[in-house]
């Protein structure tokens, strides 16, 4: 706000050609956009196209390879590990997204109350989101240790189980372990963004509803949810997008094991492309993610996002 308070004086020396060039608007626009366009073009748009091309080649690291048509996809279609990674990814995305949204919304509603140390609690709740995912995943790995799991210890002490749980040793136990870790990682982001949405809802709406004798459930169903829908749809779209393409948690906790049963499409793509050096096949797996992603994103965006009229806007 300083700039407004002090008096600025602009001394204009006899215009050099450089100053005049920067005052020429088309040039200025081009100059401002150039760095972004160059960087994103070189390292985002070009690789995106290249990835699709690579999926149709037999490239390996360091070797361009040649066009082989749909061969990679045909190989993948007959590969049970690939299909398992597809079902794993869908299972992982579906379960965690639902759980994260429900729990995140619940936490947001809790945080929207008045209680002591509110801002402090809000701050520490966001920690799982701030800390590098791989590092917290290592902590989960240790929590899931077959011999020294603290969860097993507590459950044994409570006499709920007799022996240690082998969290990462069997496929379903490992999948659920990953789901829990992902939910833990995802709740804070959803809760904090939804909390921001909750705070924009005018209290007068609730007051009016109270006067009309609306119950708590009715207030939630008729005021909170509809008012939250726009932000909910954005949050849900982002959540689906990032969960579907998740890599870090799985790579850090199970590396796709036991026996390739917990691979997500992203981790399988990595395994085939980088350590396995089959860039083409890895790229084909990555490209196979795109239709799923597009479908999930469009569904959640249009399913919820189109209700702009509920906020008094127009339904474009």
């Amino acid at each position: 706000m300083d700039a407004t308070a002090e008096t600025l004086t602009f001394t204009r020396r006899p215009d050099s050609w450089l100053t005049r060039l920067f005052d020429y608007k088309p040039f200025l626009i081009a100059a401002c956009l150039a760095p972004t366009v160059v960087l994103l073009g070189l390292f985002l748009t070009y690789p995106l196209g290249l990835g699709i091309w690579l999926a149709f080649t037999d490239s390996t690291i360091g070797q361009p390879g040649s066009f082989i048509g749909f061969e990679n996809f045909v190989t993948l279609a007959g590969d049970p590990v690939f299909w398992m990674s597809v079902t794993n990814t869908i299972f992982y995305t579906a379960t965690t997204t639902v759980a994260k949204l429900v729990l995140g919304l619940w936490l947001a509603l809790l945080l929207n109350n008045n209680f002591p140390f509110k801002s402090f609690i809000r701050a520490i709740v966001l920690l799982p989101f701030i800390v590098p995912t791989v590092l917290s995943a290592i902590a989960w790995w240790w929590i899931y240790s077959p011999q020294f799991s603290v969860v097993s210890y507590v459950l044994i002490r409570l006499h709920l189980i007799d022996s240690n749980i082998n969290f990462l040793g069997t496929p379903w136990a490992a999948r659920w372990s990953l789901v829990v870790a992902n939910i833990w990682r995802g709740i804070p982001f959803i809760a904090i963004t939804l909390l921001a949405g909750l705070q924009t809802i005018s209290p007068s709406l609730y007051e009016a509803a109270l006067l009309d004798g609306a119950s708590g459930w009715q207030r939630f169903r008729r005021i909170t949810l509809p008012m939250l829908t726009p932000i909910l749809s954005v949050v849900m779209t982002l959540t689906i997008l990032f969960t579907f393409t998740d890599f870090q948690l799985v790579y850090a906790i199970t590396r796709g094991g036991p026996f390739n049963t917990t691979h997500l499409m992203a981790t399988l793509a990595f395994q085939r492309a980088i350590p396995g050096t089959q860039l083409g096949e890895g790229a084909a797996i990555a490209v196979a993610m795109i239709p799923f992603l597009a479908a999930a994103t469009l569904a959640s965006y249009f399913g919820l996002g189109r209700r702009k009229w509920q906020q008094g806007g127009t339904d474009e």
Binding site: G51, T245, F247, A269, F270, A273, G282, A283, V287
Partner: peptide, 8 residues
């Protein structure tokens, strides 16, 4: 998402 981009 980076997990689509990293191979190319």
């Amino acid at each position: 998402p980076p997990s689509i981009l990293f191979i190319p």
